[in-house]
């Protein structure tokens, strides 16, 4: 699925940087009924993780009350050049990944 990642391409060592992520997902709550009256099954992202050169720097659990196309932003300290890896896991075996690289001077 499409994802929009915003990580600064360059940062100074020790600088606090903001990371913003936006991903496509319907986030169907499981509480709604279709026109015929049957329940629409739950289909949400349940967990998000961000790894910075392999080590986890941020994790979030997501719940039915979170809007479609979840937007998450968080901060971390730029320690070294490398790669941020993002992973979204959800219902019905949903898994999606994205990555972004950073140069630390």
């Amino acid at each position: 699925m499409a994802a929009l990642i915003n990580v600064p391409t360059k940062a100074k060592r020790g600088e606090i940087i903001e990371i913003r992520t936006l991903t496509s997902h319907i986030m169907e709550t499981g509480f709604r009924h279709a026109a015929a009256g049957d329940l629409v099954p739950r289909d949400i992202i349940t967990s998000f993780t961000c790894r910075y050169n392999g080590s986890e720097v941020f994790r979030a659990d997501l719940f039915p009350a979170i809007a479609a196309n979840p937007y998450l932003s968080f901060f971390t300290v730029a320690k070294e050049s490398g790669k941020f890896e993002f992973e979204w896991i959800g219902d019905n075996g949903y898994a999606s990944t994205a990555s972004a690289s950073i140069t630390v001077e």
Partner: peptide, 13 residues
Amino acid sequence: DDASNPGMLFVLD
């Protein structure tokens, strides 16, 4: 902000 505009996800698709 194109990084926070969910419409951009559809543009990417």
